[in-house]
Amino acid sequence: MTAALSRSEAEDFLYLEAALLDEGDWDAWLALYTEDAIFRMPAWRDEETLCSDPDTELSLIHYDGRGGLEDRVFRARSGQSVASHPRPRCVHVIGNVRLIDGADGIAEVASTFTVFLHDMRADRTHHFFGRYRHMLRHEAGTWRIARKHIVLLNDTIPTVVDFYSI
């Protein structure tokens, strides 16, 4: 009997990830990822075309393995990054969740996101929006993220974008 994922389970999973990011529970967030997880937010090749090949085109963020995300969490907590402290207040709103595939221990979930941020230091509120594509893998009795692909649609970055704000 192999694991299957329903749409409502997929939604719960994405909402949990969003809540862990928003609430700063980043160890639990990292634990959602497999050891070999690929985390990628490509840059745009032009107005309408996203970069597709991470080895020949630029990404805003590209990690091949969870270690890259662990580094990001380490930096954000280090107290040695002026950009990371005080942490902006963020809320992720996830929508339009579609289960593309959810059988045999592998699931693919498409969704949209909006992240609202308030940077207290600059008294400035802005938002990021775009699309997620999660590839989930069932391992050790639970679903984990094996791949997360983020399409950032408003990619003129206002000063900072970090793992917790996308």
Partner: peptide, 11 residues
């Protein structure tokens, strides 16, 4: 230029 321009602003 490697494909993929990155644009940002700062205040």
């Amino acid at each position: 230029l490697v494909p993929g321009a990155v644009t940002f602003t700062y205040d």
